[in-house]
Design a binder for these strands. Sequence first.
DNA 1: ATGCTCTTGCAAATGATTTGCAATAAGGAG
DNA 2: CTCCTTATTGCAAATCATTTGCAAGAGCAT
Lengths: 145, 145
Amino acid sequence: MTDSLTAETIIRQYNLKLTKPRMLVLNLLLSRQEVLTADEIYEFLVRTGSSLNFSTVYRTLETFTEKKITEKVKMPDSRKAGFLLFTMSHTHNLICLGCHKVIPIHGCPLKAFNEELAAETRFEIVGHDLTVYGYCEKCRKPHHQ
Amino acid sequence: MTDSLTAETIIRQYNLKLTKPRMLVLNLLLSRQEVLTADEIYEFLVRTGSSLNFSTVYRTLETFTEKKITEKVKMPDSRKAGFLLFTMSHTHNLICLGCHKVIPIHGCPLKAFNEELAAETRFEIVGHDLTVYGYCEKCRKPHHQ
DNA sequence: ATGCTCTTGCAAATGATTTGCAATAAGGAG
DNA sequence: CTCCTTATTGCAAATCATTTGCAAGAGCAT
């Protein structure tokens, strides 16, 4: 009864047409638990023999992000945007600056804080961006300036 | 004995040469407690009679950000970067999506959380981005989708 | 199989930011 | 105060990521 989380299932769940580019992009994101930039996705797919267009990658990622299949984050020290799976269970991520692996942070550490902040500032708080950066066990090096 | 926080004092404190563009940009940021984009700064200065170059604004903001006189944030729903004063007392900001006013968040709500997270994931955590978005009292409207 | 609509590919445009280079200005030495 | 070295600026052109217009090409409900 529970659908397995294949690219196909996901795409269908969101009422999107099942197309080759969408399958390719989503399968890549599913297979790696990583942030990828549009060009990394494009490069990889082309390098591994698929044929699709760069703008299609952008459009696909835009669509996925609207539907909350993916999430868009700003990559530190780069102008590019990163994309990663938006799994329902999290809102924030821990990103390894070495290998770009993404560890989802389950549960939002800011819930209580937001309430305090709203009371204090009288703002209506509608959201926040939180991304934590670091180095995973493998990548730990004297990287930081 | 305590230096007042004029643009001049600040620029000197960071061993930067005191130049007209730097004074203009920093004074603007000091006078408004707001996030401003490079083009907003440029437009404003030119409109109010100053003469300086767009790339100089970028270079100035880059320098200020390196020295931590300013801080660079990603503006939501825009490709542009926003710049605001980096006051030593805070790391994070609450930004009003209506008027772009910035309220510095004093103290980091993630200190304790980062330690937990490091222990749990065995990452060496080197930093994080946190920006909270909302609407200030004045701007509260049925804005959110 | 047919048609309506959503997607794609391609090429060109856009928009933000960066860069090379020569001219200029800051600030220390004398 | 003047000279000198070096950092900074202006300008124009380049770059880089991302977006867009448009015509051709799928999906998929019927």
